[in-house]
Design a protein around this nucleic acid. Structure first.
Lengths: 183, 183
DNA sequence: GTCTATAAAGGGATAGAC
DNA sequence: GTCTATCCCTTTATAGAC
């Protein structure tokens, strides 16, 4: 590609980074095009030029990273979940932006439901029993709650706690949710 | 009091109910004075007249109900927590309004931190060990996560599930978080 | 006391100059 | 291609008529 296109790509990336950061900090409604532009050090009109609308900017900013595939056994599953917690301590800004807005912005809510639903599906496939989906949903909500408290509400009690400490305490609770079949 | 004051009190209550419902549905930023007024079937200016500002209206709408006092043992504690889940299935609209806005509205976030902090304090007092506060925080986050998924995101997997079913599955997980000392 | 009219501010979106 | 200037709508908030 030409240096022109290259420069454009870099500018676009800088705008998206700024958008992710701002959406993640204050949520969809309080984030403004002007604010994103200022953070990215570009003209506000340029943001519109590139993305067409605030909605579209948000859509591009919150590209979600899907979880790893596969159907491990329940034990391994718990470890994998706790692993995502690890990730969530340095949660991708794109996911943070979505989480921040999921309770107030309809599209973010839809996106959250989709992602969480996928995770629930994957979890349910690894659990036996009639209430597998319910258990899977509760496990997902446990992780969501901890993430919200830590990343978004920034509760004092969770600030600066090493990830493996949280994982250690959470492990028995998640195992309890996988069901009675401790093979 | 006179019938004049009585009428005013009723109108004010109707406005507050409408405000709670709207704040709870769409959050602080998307809720408007006009919307509240329309739902309460009053003039928008009247809402301003009564409460002065949107901020103040919100403040009055989200009066939080404190949790029951006392320091029960861990076992009873879990049951009491699960009991609040019961309440949360028909969560007070004032709390719902706060929860809905806690990720995007600074004042709602502060209010949430305060309420959650109080609950964590109370829980921590009933748990032994160095990491009592951390465990208490995680227990609180578990309940928060489930509530968010059920009440705010309205996940299919949690819709229509009887409360005691959720309680049954959550009980072992919460007990695991109270600590190793199963007296 | 209640409502009409309007001011004031903010932000999304657009047209056109350079 | 990038930025200036502006439009236009929405919403909070206020002033004053009835």
């Amino acid at each position: 590609m030409g240096e022109r296109a290259e420069r454009r790509r870099r500018t676009e990336a800088r705008i998206l980074d700024a958008a992710r950061a701002l959406f993640g900090e204050v949520g969809y409604e309080r984030a403004t095009i002007r604010g994103v532009a200022k953070a990215a050090e570009v003209d506000p009109a340029l943001v519109m030029q590139y993305f067409g609308s605030k909605q579209e900017l948000f859509r591009h900013a919150v590209r979600v990273v899907p979880m790893a595939e596969g159907e491990p056994d329940p034990q391994e599953l718990v470890e994998r979940l706790l692993g995502t917690l690890d990730v969530k301590m340095e949660l991708p800004q794109s996911s943070l932006a979505m989480l921040r807005s999921m309770l107030t912005h309809p599209e973010a809510a839809a996106s959250a439901r989709e992602v969480l639903g996928q995770q629930i599906d994957r979890l349910a496939g690894s659990i036996t029993g009639d209430d597998a989906r319910l258990r899977a949903a509760l496990m997902t909500m446990v992780l969501l709650g901890v993430t919200v408290g830590h990343q978004l509400l920034e509760l004092d009690e969770l600030r600066g706690v090493p990830q493996d400490e949280v994982a250690r305490l959470l492990r028995p609770a998640l195992r309890a949710l996988t069901g009675p079949d401790v093979s």
